[in-house]
Amino acid sequence: MVVNAFDICLCLTLAWLAWQVLRSHDLFKAVVLFISFGMLMALSWVRLQAPDLALAEAAIGSGLTGALFLSALQRVTGNKRGERRLDRNEERHDKRA
């Protein structure tokens, strides 16, 4: 019963996260969501009784993809535009405050 609830919760969160990653226009947000997705994926592999995959996903998903994607984001958007993209939200926040 509880185990089923855990699995269902995991599935729903994963599906919702995947949807959010796909629909996000802000690339940085998508990257962070994807990192979270990787971590939840590691939990799913544990539940599917595949500890080998869980280990690989924990290493790749939580640590390396995050670093690789953030580094790639910096290169892809170019330094200035990429930063402006990150800063835009902060400026908006400043104005509101």
């Binding site: 500890p51 080998d52 869980a54 280990l55 690989a56 290493a59 790749i60 640590g63 390396l64 670093a67 690789l68």
Partner: peptide, 22 residues
């Protein structure tokens, strides 16, 4: 004899390399 192996170990070594690079 249990879970683990080349790819997992390699990923962690890669993480160490990334940390050094950062």
């Amino acid at each position: 004899n249990q879970a683990g192996g080349a790819f997992q170990a390699g990923a962690i070594l890669g993480g160490a390399g990334v940390l050094l690079l950062l």
